[in-house]
């Protein structure tokens, strides 16, 4: 539908937060730095952070404007999937970008997502860490081993057609995100895998761009010990339902 650099395209960047008062400020600055000639809005979905994340977002609104930074908070932690649905309700763009607030996703890659989409007309552009030009930083050997093992297992069993299933830095056509998200029930980062596998099964055009992933600088990592079990359960669930 959209051809080339259509000036009518608007991008809604949904950033779910929980206790990210410093990171949200940094990420908003970097988004505005790297998206100069693009129509976009940032939608912060904050799950009632006790650290004052919302105060910082209000300060940012004074700098960048309330129509560019939308604060759409929720009262308590309600999970990632519903955070996207919540943000999506308030999105006015025809494209939606979802990214993490912890700076592991750098906004400097946003232009390459947009460029890839307009070049290929894809419905989804997903960031991948596992190709040339991509990469990770700050992972231990164990984390790399787990990640590779999980990836080989998923590639062998699911044939998803994308190289990075659990990455969550993605650009969606808004109607496609609305369609896919309504059929996803998983939580955590199995949710990311479910989104891309379902989209792939529905036959949507998916393209990839390399991204780098620097493990979170500020705050503590939210990875838990039961992740592997959850992942395997998610894999089996997807085998039977997609």
């Amino acid at each position: 539908m959209e051809i080339g650099d259509n000036p009518k395209n608007k991008y809604s960047i949904i950033v779910p937060t929980y206790n990210e008062r410093l990171n949200i400020a940094l990420i908003v600055y970097l988004i505005f730095k790297h998206l100069r000639d693009v129509d976009f809005e940032v939608i912060v979905v904050d799950d009632g952070s006790p650290d004052g994340t919302q105060e910082i977002v209000k300060q940012l609104q004074k700098v960048y404007g309330e129509e560019r930074i939308l604060l759409r908070p929720r009262s308590k932690k309600l999970g990632l999937g519903t955070a996207y649905i919540h943000g999506l309700k308030h999105a006015t763009g025809n494209f939606v970008v979802i990214m993490d607030a912890d700076l592991s996703h750098h906004p400097k890659y946003l232009p390459s997502f947009i460029k890839k989409q307009s070049e290929t007309g894809a419905s989804i552009v997903t960031g991948t860490r596992y190709v040339k030009g991509g990469g990770v930083h700050g992972w231990t050997l164990m984390r790399k081993l787990t990640s590779r093992g999980a990836n080989v297992l998923a590639q062998t069993l699911l044939w998803p057609g994308v190289s990075d299933l659990t990455g969550s830095f993605r650009l969606y056509r808004k109607s496609v995100l609305e369609d896919v998200i309504s059929s996803c029930v998983s939580k955590g980062y199995v949710f990311q895998m479910e989104m891309i596998v379902r989209a792939s099964r529905k036959g949507y055009h998916i393209e990839e761009v390399p991204i780098t992933f620097v493990d979170r600088v500020y705050g503590t990592s939210k990875l838990g010990g039961s992740e592997i079990v959850e992942y395997l359960k998610g894999l089996v669930y997807l085998l039977f339902t997609t």
Binding site: Y130, G135, R148, V152, V214
Partner: peptide
């Protein structure tokens, strides 16, 4: 596949500095 993937695991230490 796991072995090859592990050996060729792309890393980006320079990105941490840029960040």
């Amino acid at each position: 596949m796991v072995g090859v993937g592990l050996m060729q695991f792309p890393t980006c230490p320079q990105e941490a500095l840029l960040l």
